[in-house]
Every structure is written in structure tokens, then in C-alpha cells.
């Protein structure tokens, strides 16, 4: 066997696990999913071919779906952008020559380590209308806090607020990026008489652009898939409820979950997934 051939063989051997996973769990799954989306399969009885009915229904009749899409985009874009602005703002202060900077960083990071299940259970409490910590805190300033999770107008802001709690994750990434900026840049700027905010704005931010961009993308991907918080925080105890009140917090993945795993509309759920793909 030639060296070249052998090398190629090795390559394929080593890549095989991923390739296998790709063919079955991704490519095959996608084809299967598309086929399913043309049926009315309920997971148990024989699937019936319905053509593009599921898609037609989604586009013309299903108001909740569009609400879910809107909610998800609203939540994801605002929470991610706000989170980024917030962490850039914190990053500025942390980047000053302060003592105990790493202590602060740690303090800010701890909330980001709390798994979603734990923080959702906690925030369900914090956001309680009268006895919740947040409204009790607001009351100190004479503000009568909203009913948060129970109010269609406030449930998304509540979820965004909660997402800001985990801002430490992106701060850590930003700080790592800042560290790698050579100090000469700042020294030169200082000679030019630039103030610290100006330095931050003119040197740090532009150099951080790749990190910021990367963070935004990763943040969006994560936020678009929000599920756990919705499942835990916005049900009212009924068997099929989630995403309330009045579907104001219904998001894409929870809606997919409802259709697929609660109503057993596998075909319809697959169609939802495909629309999102485009």
C-alpha cells in the first residue's frame, strides 16, 4: 500500500465516528424530518401523506407559532444585545487599574455557573408579585413592581432581566480578550492625551470586535433555544400549559415541544423545525 493511500485510510478511520454521527444524526435526521413534515404522523398510527398542509397551516392559520417566533426573536435579540452592552460597560470598569479585579470577576461569574434549572426555580421566586425579592427591593424605592411572570407585558422583560444575571460569562471572555491587547497601544494613546473612556472606545473596543462578534453569535444561538426557563417558570400547573400568560412567553422550542411531545404531532412539529431552518 502506498504511503498516500495509507494516510487517506487513516484519515477516514479517524474521522469515521464523526462521519457516522453526521450521516445518521444530522443528515439522515434532516431528510427524515423533511419527510415527516409532509405527514400527519402522531408517532403511533400509520403516517398519512398530507403534502404541504402542515406548512400551509403554519403560515396561514397558526397564530401561536408566529407569536412564538416573534417572542423568541424579541427575547434573543434584546437579551443578547443588552447583555453585551452591559458587559462592555462592566468591562470598562474592570479594566481600570482597580485592586481586587479578579475578585470582582469571580463574583460576577458565579451566577453564570448556576445551571438553568436552578436559576429558573430561583427566579420563579424572585419574580413573585409581592413576596418576590425583586419587587420587595423595588418597593424600597417606592416602586410598585409589576407581576412579572403573570403579566403578558412583563414576562419577556422578566426573562431578559434573568438573562442579565448571567452576564459574567461574557465578561470573562471580554476580559481574556482585553488582556491580550499589548499595553503599548494604551501608552501611545496616553501620550496623545486620550482619557480612559476614550481609550476604551478607540482602542479596546475595535480590537475586541472579533470577540464581541463571536459572543453575540454564540449568545444568539443559545438564546434562540430557550426552553428550560419557559418550562419551569411560565407554566401555571396545568398539564399542557407553558409559555403563558396568553402565550406571551411562548418560544420556539417550547412550542415545538408542545406539538411534538405533548400533542404528538410529529409531522407538524417537523414542519415547524424546517421553517425555522430557512
Amino acid at each position: 500500500m502506498t504511503r498516500k493511500k495509507k494516510e487517506a485510510l487513516w484519515f477516514y478511520l479517524l474521522v469515521l465516528p464523526w462521519l457516522f454521527g453526521f450521516v445518521t444524526l444530522t443528515l439522515g435526521a434532516m431528510i427524515y424530518s423533511f419527510a415527516l413534515s409532509l405527514t400527519n404522523w402522531d408517532l403511533f398510527t400509520t403516517p398519512g401523506f398530507v403534502g404541504f398542509d402542515n406548512y400551509v397551516r403554519l403560515f396561514t392559520k397558526d397564530k401561536i407559532f408566529w407569536k412564538a417566533v416573534y417572542n423568541t426573536l424579541f427575547y434573543a435579540s434584546i437579551s443578547v444585545v443588552a447583555g453585551m452592552l452591559f458587559s462592555l460597560c462592566i468591562g470598562y470598569f474592570l479594566n481600570r487599574p482597580v485592586r481586587g479585579s479578579s475578585l470582582y470577576r469571580t463574583l460576577y461569574y458565579i451566577p453564570a455557573t448556576v445551571p438553568a434549572v436552578a436559576s429558573a426555580l430561583l427566579f420563579k421566586w424572585l419574580l413573585a408579585p409581592d413576596v418576590g425579592l425583586i419587587n420587595r427591593f423595588l418597593a424600597l424605592f417606592g416602586i410598585d413592581g409589576p407581576a412579572w411572570l403573570l403579566d403578558p407585558a412583563w414576562v419577556k422583560p422578566a426573562l431578559i432581566l434573568m438573562s442579565l444575571w448571567t452576564v459574567g460569562a461574557s465578561i470573562t471572555l471580554l476580559m481574556a480578550g482585553m488582556k491580550s491587547i499589548p499595553t503599548e497601544f494604551y501608552e501611545a494613546a496616553e501620550l496623545d492625551g486620550a482619557s480612559p473612556p476614550a481609550q476604551y472606545y478607540r482602542i479596546t473596543l475595535p480590537l475586541l470586535t472579533p470577540v464581541i462578534f463571536f459572543n453575540l453569535i454564540i449568545g444568539m444561538i443559545g438564546a434562540l433555544q430557550i426552553f428550560t426557563q419557559i418550562y419551569i417558570m411560565t407554566g401555571n400547573g396545568g398539564a399542557s400549559s407553558m409559555g403563558g400568560p396568553n402565550n406571551a412567553s411562548m418560544m420556539i422550542v417550547p412550542y415545538l415541544f408542545n406539538n411534538g411531545f405533548r400533542f404528538y404531532k410529529m409531522g407538524y412539529a417537523s414542519a415547524i423545525a424546517w421553517i425555522l431552518f430557512y
Binding site: 444524526l25 434532516m30 433555544q225 411534538g260 423545525a273 431552518f277
Partner: peptide, 13 residues
């Protein structure tokens, strides 16, 4: 590829 697309078929599989 968003994870949603493969969710249902993976579950079925």
C-alpha cells in the same frame, strides 16, 4: 444547523 431540526427525528430514532 439549529438543533430543532434534528430534534424530532433523533427522538424517533
Amino acid at each position: 444547523i439549529p438543533a430543532e431540526v434534528t430534534l424530532i427525528p433523533q427522538f424517533v430514532l
